[in-house]
Each structure stands twice: as structure tokens, then as C-alpha cells.
């Protein structure tokens, strides 16, 4: 498993066998409170970095998720349809949101590593 990278907007991405796994950081889920619904993207959607790709809803707020990298959505986490609480309980594990095949891996270089992100959010 590769290193996890973070965007300033609190998305994370980590590479698993050349595919990027994207979700929101543990810190972000804490800020949002109880997640009640995740509007997932369509598989096959082509994204540019920064595109709005999903919506994460708590009871009183809806937050847009922006794609941290460019590429094509290859899989979405269907488990969230029945159990959106996974984003709270396991944001960076079972609470992943979508997988993306990256069109430009160099975009990862602009993102924060764990230590930088931790200091960014503290």
C-alpha cells in the first residue's frame, strides 16, 4: 500500500495497485458529524482535478467532495448506500468513497503527506 496523500480540502487518496482510493479524512468526518448519506458518482465518470464528484450529507449540512486528482472513476463504494456511517467509523478504511484511475500521477506530488496534513489541521 502506498503512502496516503491529502488535499487542502480534506480528501485523501492512496494508491492500491495503480488505482487511487479516495475518501474524506478522519479529521473531516469528525468536523461534519454524523454522516447520513453519500451521493456517489457514476462509474466511468471522467474527472478533472477539483471537479465536484460526490456529496456527503450530515443531518444539517451537505458538503461537496472534490476530486483530488484527474482520471476516471472505476469503482464506487456501494456499501455506503446502506451504511453511510462507515464514513464516520472508518473514514480512511471501509468508508472510502470511490476509486479512480489516475491520468496524471504527478498531481499526487502537489498533495500533502500525513505529517504536513496533521499540522495543517491542528
Amino acid at each position: 500500500m502506498s503512502e496516503t496523500k491529502y488535499s487542502t480540502d480534506h480528501e485523501y487518496i492512496r494508491l492500491e495497485a495503480e488505482v487511487g482510493v479516495v475518501g474524506i479524512s478522519t479529521y473531516a468526518q469528525e468536523q461534519l458529524g454524523d454522516i447520513v448519506y453519500v451521493e456517489l458518482p457514476n462509474v466511468g465518470a471522467k474527472l478533472s482535478k477539483g471537479d465536484e464528484v460526490a456529496v456527503i450529507e450530515s443531518v444539517k449540512a451537505a458538503s461537496e467532495l472534490y476530486s483530488p486528482v484527474s482520471g476516471e472513476v472505476v469503482e464506487v463504494n456501494e456499501a455506503l448506500n446502506d451504511e453511510p456511517a462507515l464514513v464516520n467509523s472508518d473514514a480512511q478504511g471501509g468508508g472510502w468513497i470511490f476509486k479512480i484511475s489516475l491520468s496524471d500521477k504527478s498531481e499526487l506530488d502537489e498533495m500533502m503527506d500525513e505529517a504536513t496534513y496533521t499540522s495543517h489541521t491542528s
Binding site: Y37, E57, S58, K60, A62
Partner: peptide
């Protein structure tokens, strides 16, 4: 009242 994220007071222009 529930599923209010659909509504104007939360989603505003969306």
C-alpha cells in the same frame, strides 16, 4: 422533519 439537506435552508442554490 428529515432529509432536509434537499431543502433551500441547507442546500441554498443547490
Amino acid at each position: 422533519l428529515t432529509l432536509s439537506t434537499r431543502e433551500q435552508h441547507i442546500r441554498r442554490e443547490k
